[in-house]
Design a protein around this nucleic acid. Sequence first.
DNA 1: GGATTTCCGAAATGATTGTAACAGAAAATG
DNA 2: CATTTTCTGTTACAATCATTTCGGAAATCC
Lengths: 291, 291
Amino acid sequence: MDMDLPLGVEDRLRAALPDLTRAERQVATHILRQYPVAALGSITALARAAEVSTPTVVRLCQKLGYRGYPDFQSALRGEVGAMLESPLVKHDRWAGGAPDTHILNRFAAAVVANLQATLSQINHGDFDAVANLLADPSRRIFAMGGRITHAHADYLVSLMKVVRPEVTLLSDMSNTWPPALLDMKPGDVLVAFDIRRYENSVLQLVELSVEQGAEVVVITDRWVSPAAAHARHTLTAHIEAPSAWDSTVSILVLVETLLASVQSRTWAETEGRMKRMETLYDRSRFFRRYR
Amino acid sequence: MDMDLPLGVEDRLRAALPDLTRAERQVATHILRQYPVAALGSITALARAAEVSTPTVVRLCQKLGYRGYPDFQSALRGEVGAMLESPLVKHDRWAGGAPDTHILNRFAAAVVANLQATLSQINHGDFDAVANLLADPSRRIFAMGGRITHAHADYLVSLMKVVRPEVTLLSDMSNTWPPALLDMKPGDVLVAFDIRRYENSVLQLVELSVEQGAEVVVITDRWVSPAAAHARHTLTAHIEAPSAWDSTVSILVLVETLLASVQSRTWAETEGRMKRMETLYDRSRFFRRYR
DNA sequence: GGATTTCCGAAATGATTGTAACAGAAAATG
DNA sequence: CATTTTCTGTTACAATCATTTCGGAAATCC
């Protein structure tokens, strides 16, 4: 006898799914298909919608560990309540109407919207192609960003260095370019970040790199940097935010997902490398612990 | 005879509020107070909770333009359903539903979950206090990060410099600290980023800064950096991700929201500063446009 | 203050709900 | 193929629900 009490309704439904009979599964999938609205009404409505009889629904509820339909439903209602209280969905209700939600919530809502817009628009093939480029050990990787996106290039490089060798951050000061460009061979990859207001330095570097035969990936906003004209691949992100600036969160998501993607592509070689890196960090940390 | 058909349940409740009788208003406010869960159950439950009789509830529903309680409730359920269709829940859905989704979607789902978890746990008072610290022109701001979070400190500093003067990025190389620490006066602010694996350098700098009398803000993950022990304020973020390492997206959201918050607090002084900054950038860009 | 109107809940009532019991159908087992 | 087991819907019934009715309480108006 195993009891799995502390689970949510949705989880229980999913978990129980394989052990259910045909009609019961019919109900369960119907609920999941339009969760949770489907199960917010009366048992008869649910049964009719799922095209089974009401006792089937009752039996399902009991199989899930509830005492009956009302019990099941009140559990569900509790969760729905919690969902709706959750900061992101939280409507600007509460006395006095809209403008009193905390900026954290407003900002987060914008971020989520951006993310959704970005993802719905990204071409998976393009994305995978970029990941493949970055995962190719025979290519060197260079990255640069503009005034605002410099930090993202930095982030990409710091973490990518853990996964593979030959990753270089190009400063946005153009006097550091020549040595790097000197090293750039055909087939090498430049990842350039450029969001509005687009910067000339990025455009110039991209042009120079293309002349060297590099593959250029441009990560930009949805109004598209002019540098993208020279790029092999372009990833665009939505960056609107309720503030004087833009939000670069979706760009960070792209970067992190690229990292995850590259890392999973090269796991065989990466694993050892990461382990070694960890130990080295550990030892250097130990070394520095003088205090 | 005025008919206001095309309104939402919540709006109708609010709109009708003044024209209601005592008992009816009692019901309406009770529903609004815990909207919409309060009205998802049976009429008796609602009536008891609002401490009125069931006929009162019925009369209220009819006054709002519904045919009765069931009609009212089904309208409400429709809206709840629409609410729950909002972005993040959908993400949850396609993330949990189909295991073969692209890594972009899986990653984004994790990101949204992190965000939600982070926000539900952040103390608004704390957050605002930090924003106030950063907005105070009489304090100098310093920021530093660890191996991974260095980029976030960089980002914070780059953008904060636009909003206000006296913002400095501390490298994680400890030989650059002494001059900065020399400048640090009591009341100055250090923003330190530290996520697992926590780094000794951050801890050390925090300790030194506290000795100098600085106010320390630590931004860390939910397992909390040891540096937080010395901090005046701590903001924690969720960073789990479906990859070999963590996702710092929620940290970036915190940073950007802090920026937006500070910026709106100091808009009066900031506006001119930002304008000047823009023109300077424009002119320098123009200057560099030699090609 | 008396009369009128408005408001509210107790009681009554019909409708609906959720569950238990049962029986036929389907599948599995020998 | 017979038999058992499992599954599912029909029926029946108690419980609850939503609504109408109605009488009295409270407020309002001459």
